[in-house]
Design a protein around this nucleic acid. Sequence first.
DNA 1: GCCGTTTTCGGCCCGACTGTTTTCAGTCG
Length: 569
Amino acid sequence: MNKKIIIRTLEKIALYMELKGENPFKVSAFRKAAQALELDQRSLDEIEDVTKLKGIGKGTGDVILELINDNKSTVLEELQEEVPKGLIPMMKLQGLGGKKIAKLYKELGIDSMETLKAACLNEEIQKLPGFGPKSEEKILKEINDFETKPDRQPIWKTEETVAFIQDVLTSIAEVTEFSVAGSFRRTKETSKDIDFIIATAEPALVKEQLLAALPVKETIASGDTKVSVTVEVLEPIDVDFRLVAPEEFVTALHHFTGSKDHNVKMRQLAKSQNKKISEYGVEQEDGTVTTFASETEFFAHFGLPFIPPSVREDGRELDRLDELPELVTIEDIKGDLHMHTTWSDGANSLTEMIEACVAKSYQFMVITDHSQYLKVANGLTPERLTEQHALIRETNKKYSEIEVFSGTEMDILPDASLDFDDDMLSQLDFVIASIHSSFQQPQEQIMERILTAMKNPNVHMIAHPTGRIVGQRDGYNPDVEQILDWAKEYGKIVELNASPYRLDLAVPYLVLAQEKGVPVAINTDAHAIEGLEVMETGVKHAQKAWLKKDTVVNTWSLEKFKEFINKSK
DNA sequence: GCCGTTTTCGGCCCGACTGTTTTCAGTCG
C-alpha cells in the first residue's frame, strides 16, 4: 500500500465528513492524521506502529490498518454511500462549505455543480432559509470563475502585481509601514492570492486612497480592517489588505505571513507558555498585550531565534532550530556562475556585467554565453568563444577585487552530442551543459543526453536540470534522482536557476540533492544587470529546501571554488 | 477523533467579514 494513497484517503474521509456535517474537530482529526503521515519522512514499511504517531489514534489508525491489509476503507465506502460524489468539487467554490452544501443537497436535491448552477438560474436558492439573492448571485459567479480562473499563479506573474501595489502604498502619506505577506513573502513558487499588511493610524483614509489607485475588478469584502479585492494588473488576482495600528504591524505581519501550520505551531507554543498570540499582539497571562518592533523580537519573546519566512511551512521548522545558523543566506553568496552578455543574447556588455558583480561585492563570477547551436540567442562559435576567452583573460587583469572566469553555457544537442569539442572545452575555466531543444524526446533519450554531459570531464555543471517554467511548462521530464546520482558519481554541480520563471531545481529535488551530497550552485542566469537581482529569490528558494551554506557552491571561498573547477582537469 | 507533567473529560488557534438575520452561523485564512 502506497503511503500517498493512505494520505489521500484520510483527506477524502475528512471531506465527506465535512459534507455530512460531522463534528469539525473530528473532521480535523482525520486531516491531522493525514498530515502526521505526510510529515513523517519514513516509508510505510519503516513505520512500525502508525498509531504511535502523534495525531493518529484508534479511529484513524484502524482506517490506515484496513487500507494496508485489505486495500480498502469501510469508513470511506460507507460515507460514499451516504454522500453523493458530485458534492466534492463544490467544496472548491469560495463561500460554500460543508454545511451549506449539505443543506442545498438536503433541501433541494442539489448533487452536482450542474444542478447547482441550474438551481441558481431558476432562483431556487434564494428561497432557502439562510440563503438570499446575494448568496445565489455569488454562487453563480463562483461557478463561472471556477471554470475560467486559474487556481494559483506563478511567482513571476504575481511579482508584477506586488511591485505595482508597493508603488501605490509608497505614495500614500498616511501609510507608516507596509509589507507583502502570505505565500509571496514565503517565496512559494505559486500563490493563490496576495496579502499585504499596512500600518496606519488612519485606516479609513488609506483604504479609500488604496481602492482608488488600484485597478480593482471586483470587491470581495470591505471591512474596517480587512479589504479583499480582485485586481487586474497583469492577470486578475485576489489581494487581501489588512489595515492595523502601527504597533500591531509586526504581529500582524507574522500572522499573515503564515503558513497556517506555522501559526498553529506558534500558537500552541505560546499557549504552553500561558500566552496567546493573535494578529494584534501577544496576550500575557495577566491580560496585557505585548507588541514588538521586529519579528526578531517577536520570536525572541518565545525563546526562539528569527525564523525566516521562507522556511515557515509545515511547522517542522520549529523542530529544526539548530539548523538555522547553517542555512544559506544572501550574505553568504560570493559569486554567480551563470550569466550572459551582449556576445550572445544578453543586454549588457562584459564590462558592465563585471562592474555590476563588483558592486555586489562578489569575489568571483563566470561569463557563460550561449554556444553556437542556439542561433536564436546568437550563440558563440568556437572562434568567437576563443576571442571572448582572450578578452575575459585580459579584462580580468584590471580587477583585483573580483576573479572573472571564462565559461560557456553549452547546449547538449538532440543527438546527445555536445556543442563544443573537448579541445575547445578544456581551454575554458567553467563549462555549463544545458538542454534547450527537443524537449519532447522520450525520457530515455533525454537521459542519454544528460549522461553524455555528465561523463565529459570538462563539464562542471548541469544548468536548469528539468527545463521547467513555473506554472507554464513541465520541461523535458528527466529522471531527476538519476541525475543527482550521476552528479555525485561524476563530481558535477547541479544548478538552482534562480530566475522566478525557472526555480529549477524545485524544492523537493534540492532536498534530495543535499541528502545525496551533490553540490548546488544558485545562479541568476542573468541576461542583463537587473537579472542579477534574482539571486535573492534563488537563495530563499534554497532555504525552503533547507540548503546549508556548505552545499551551495557560490558560498565557497574563491580558493575552494578554484580547486573544485580544476580538479577535473 | 485525539490528547494529556493542571489527564480520562473537555478542549482542540483565533479573529474578520458576509449575508442573513435581528444576534449569529458559516466560511475563510
